[in-house]
Design a protein around this nucleic acid. Sequence first.
DNA 1: CAAATTTATTAAACAGTGTTCAATTATCAA
DNA 2: TTGATAATTGAACACTGTTTAATAAATTTG
Lengths: 202, 202
Amino acid sequence: MSIAERKQEEKQEMHQRILNAARKIFLEKGYEKTSMRNIANEINYSPGSLYFHFKDKTEIFQELQKEGFTLLLNQLKVLNSVADPFERLKASGRVFIQFAQENKDYYNLMFMVEETVKDPTETRFTIAQEAINHMCSMIRDCQQQGKFKEMDADYFTFMVISAMHGICALFCKDRTTSFINKTNEELMENGYACFVALLEKS
Amino acid sequence: MSIAERKQEEKQEMHQRILNAARKIFLEKGYEKTSMRNIANEINYSPGSLYFHFKDKTEIFQELQKEGFTLLLNQLKVLNSVADPFERLKASGRVFIQFAQENKDYYNLMFMVEETVKDPTETRFTIAQEAINHMCSMIRDCQQQGKFKEMDADYFTFMVISAMHGICALFCKDRTTSFINKTNEELMENGYACFVALLEKS
DNA sequence: CAAATTTATTAAACAGTGTTCAATTATCAA
DNA sequence: TTGATAATTGAACACTGTTTAATAAATTTG
């Protein structure tokens, strides 16, 4: 089966070549403005051949989405070494926002595109749920230390994620320009600091 | 000039007919999936003629965006009768979130599409800035009552808007499904309640 | 080795998109 | 009625995602 294996590897190599080209162009031009022909041209490939390796445009896109999620999760995992749960929670928000700043296009692909696939067994879903559960248990740990008392952990988690996402979402769709005389970085950093200040008083 | 006036009115009538058709289809199918031919067909018009009344597709879209903004602002204006600034602030958030729930498509058009025009004199920009200033002065009023002390009003405003927008943004892109066993309404209502609880303790 | 079969690739075609433009009709002023 | 202006049209252009029949390459089988 050595030949079949090599075949398999060659196919995966092509798979990766396509994905690399797609990543480059998707992150440059966004989902809608990237065409299958664009991706094919990038690697001197025929547009039709893409459909031999991927079902359609969304399947390519979803693989990149997955990439983004694991990239973000890896950055968050580093914080597992932070012992104090509240410190870890605060740092998680900072990492999250920094990720959005440094990977604006990934963030757009990951969180700002309408979710079409509703299959809950899909990999991206399980990753998202994992992230939410991680967040929620962090908050429960905080509660055991006396913070966020009499708050429902699930809804509180949703709120914290919403607040962080809101900051990033405004940034990623250029809706920060209406806040005059402030740079994106100032708004996001100090805005998050305000949120942290609220958390600290609770 | 009576004839010229009538002419003008007839033109504006066509302008409105197009806008009505566009609103219907944009809100049904979203920006990308709505074609100029779709809009033209809806009113038995030729696609080319649309370009006599509007520069391009984005110009039609932006008029609808403006509609959405004034619709939201009108709903918020009602709260001017609420004397206590903190009560008004809390109610504003509720109205904002309710607007997103009841006008999901408008909300997507208004806040979830990349901002291309950066002209700060554009109507939508002035409306947005008006809304932000309104929000900010409300928060300053709260501060005069002793709330949110030692917080920078501008950044605090950004944070509050972000938090509200975050809730709506997750909802509008169907990213709430990862929070299992909770409906959208439960998440948004109780999530916002958590945020209010934070505000109350500050 | 040759034939048959599987695998991979291609170009052409289909139905759709936003937009432009010359030709055409309708409307009004002189 | 003529000339000019305003409004409308359909065809065309260059693009889009996707399908498919034909082709080429590689592998398996006889």
